[in-house]
């Protein structure tokens, strides 16, 4: 149940993040378009970005249209999302957070602190699933008592993470480690979902096993590997080795970061 919520959270936060940061500051000449645009929104079908755009346009048709028209440097993949984060980067919220003396560092510290709460306790649970610690404690007891804390930690991580992202949205969005991290987060969420809707439903039958059944051990090991990878890729977001403004990069990197270098940078 809570696993299902956890998989939805990143998407929810992304949307919230946009609604919070999007300024109502379309160029003045765009204002008169509003009613017209709302009826005639150019949304190319079958793309995640455009689905998100469709959702957002209900509220803010004109500003979004404005950036779609203005953003002309990137026609490649993900250009709608790219423009969306470009606008976020221009918001006073983002600039304020980015330039603040202590706010960013403080949020970063909270992110690291919550990492201990979330990652630490999640790892302890995974280790129990592997039968490597707390072997005398029933698995369901560990889950009931400790997983609520990992949920608290996760919520704090997502909120503080979204704030950190909103301070540097465009660069983060085009950062290869950030993208890796988001994909791994989804995979980890699916793993949680499978575990809770699968072998964990029969937990009564293996609650006191010193070494839980194979499916549970696989879920634990997978979770361990995934969260470690997520922490590692999260830490690496800070480094700019593969950033868009550091050309030349291999074509595959530019493809993966949806980066279109200008002619001069080739």
């Amino acid at each position: 149940m809570s696993g299902r919520l956890i998989t939805l959270l990143p998407a929810l936060v992304l949307v919230l993040c946009y609604l919070m940061t999007a300024p109502d500051q379309a160029p003045a000449y765009m204002a008169q378009w509003t009613s017209e645009v709302r009826r005639n929104v150019p949304v190319p079908p079958s793309q995640f970005a455009s689905a998100l755009a469709r959702f957002v346009i209900f509220r803010r048709a004109a500003p979004f249209r404005a950036t779609l028209l203005e953003g002309n440097s990137n026609q490649g993949t993900g250009s709608a999302l790219l423009n969306f984060f470009r606008r976020m980067a221009d918001s006073s919220w983002s600039v304020g957070l980015h330039e603040s003396r202590y706010a960013y560092d403080l949020i970063e510290s909270i992110h690291v602190w919550a990492l201990c709460l979330f990652f630490g306790l999640a790892v302890m649970f995974d280790l129990r699933l592997l039968g490597w610690t707390m072997r005398s404690v029933p698995v369901s007891e560990v889950a009931r008592r400790l997983l609520p804390w990992t949920a608290v930690g996760f919520v704090v991580m997502v909120i503080s993470g979204a704030l950190l992202f909103s301070a540097i949205p465009l660069r983060s969005f085009q950062n290869i480690f950030f993208r890796t991290k988001m994909i791994l987060l989804m995979v980890a969420g699916i793993n949680v979902l499978i575990f809770h809707s699968g072998v964990y439903r029969r937990v009564i039958s293996w609650d006191l096993d010193l070494t839980p059944p194979r499916a549970a051990r696989v879920a634990g090991a997978l979770s361990l590997v995934l969260w470690v990878a997520i922490v590692l890729s999260g830490r690496m977001i800070a480094y700019n080795w593969f950033d868009c403004d550091r050309q030349p990069q291999p074509a595959i990197i530019n493809f993966l970061t949806s980066c279109v270098p200008t002619e001069a940078e080739h």
């Binding site: 630490g120 404690v137 804390w149």
Partner: peptide, 26 residues
């Protein structure tokens, strides 16, 4: 950083038990 997370987990399991907010029966 990974080590920090692990220390956090090992410390919190015991501290939450002492605070009565985590495991209780053990």
């Amino acid at each position: 950083l990974l080590g920090l997370g692990l220390i956090g987990g090992a410390v919190l399991v015991v501290d939450l038990r002492l605070l009565g907010l985590g495991l209780r029966r053990q």
